[in-house]
């Protein structure tokens, strides 16, 4: 019952976000600021993690494909499939839920407890539009981050394969090009757009409707991370069933 109410409140919030827009001149600067914070600010960690995860996936695959009858190119193939289908879109999204999500919850939550949101409302500003809309727009650039994550992940795989002596470069690259289905990339981008929306809105919800003081801001960030991850995992399952099933 409590959850049902929260879900209802969440969708009402989304509706409010798109009502009564803030002046475009001001919104533009807010959006640019959020792009810088939410997308560029997260690139470092995304690249770092993608590179090493790509490497690990390759090593694991290589160790499990030690039958000499199997061609080495399968290592490249398996790396490509796992990175494009799951690791780049889903794994990075969970990381983003931690990094970007907790930033969103704590910044909005702090504004709530210090009455800055009330101050916006008193001025007659739609605070949800002012605070959440730029975040939603900024995270719509998230598929670019995922594209980079895919590239770096596969690069990490190649480095691990070649320098770890698991597969020669030629075989690995041949595997990368084997049976390539561009729909898989489309699927990954559709997923990441939906995840991006979740990452922008669920933490905003937790920050916006929190009550209490500084301690509660910390708690709200943790709760927000848990829920954002849960929603991402569920949405991932549903979308995979719908788009690939």
């Amino acid at each position: 019952m409590k959850y049902l109410e929260a879900i209802g409140k969440y969708f009402i919030m989304i509706w409010e976000v798109f009502k009564k827009p803030t002046k475009w001149r001001i919104m533009k600067t807010l959006i640019l600021k959020e792009i810088d914070e939410l997308i560029f600010g997260a690139m470092g960690i995304i690249i770092f993690i993608s590179f090493f995860i790509g490497g690990v996936v390759t090593i694991q695959t290589a160790l499990n494909l030690n039958n000499p009858l199997l061609p080495k190119s399968l290592i490249g193939f398996a790396t490509r499939q796992s990175v494009i289908l799951e690791f780049a879109p889903t794994f990075t999204s969970i990381i983003m839920a931690g990094k970007v999500g907790s930033y969103i919850t704590s910044s909005i939550g702090t504004m709530r407890v210090t009455e800055q949101i009330d101050a916006l409302e008193v001025m007659g500003i739609n605070s949800l539009n002012y605070l959440v809309f730029p975040k939603i727009v900024a995270t719509m650039l998230y598929p670019f981050a995922v594209a980079i994550s895919m590239f770096v992940g596969i690069l990490g795989g190649w480095v691990a394969a070649v320098f770890g002596g698991f597969a020669p470069s030629g075989d690995f690259i041949q595997g990368l090009q084997m049976d390539f289905d561009s729909y898989h990339v489309t699927y990954a981008f559709i997923k990441s757009i939906v995840f991006a929306f979740v990452i922008a809105t669920v933490p905003s919800y937790h920050g916006f409707y929190m009550t209490g003081g500084a301690l509660e801001v910390g708690k709200a960030s943790t709760t927000s991370f848990v829920w954002t991850s849960v929603v991402i995992i569920i949405v991932n399952y549903v979308l995979t069933q719908l788009l690939l099933g």
Binding site: K23, T110, T114, E115, D118, M123
Partner: peptide
């Protein structure tokens, strides 16, 4: 106009930015 119990200034903006904010908006 409202002066809140804890001032409620926007901490991402300078003093000047805070005061100019309503003018920018409206």
């Amino acid at each position: 106009g409202m002066v809140f119990q804890g001032s409620a200034l926007f901490d991402s903006m300078t003093v000047e930015g805070n005061v100019m904010f309503p003018l920018d908006m409206f």
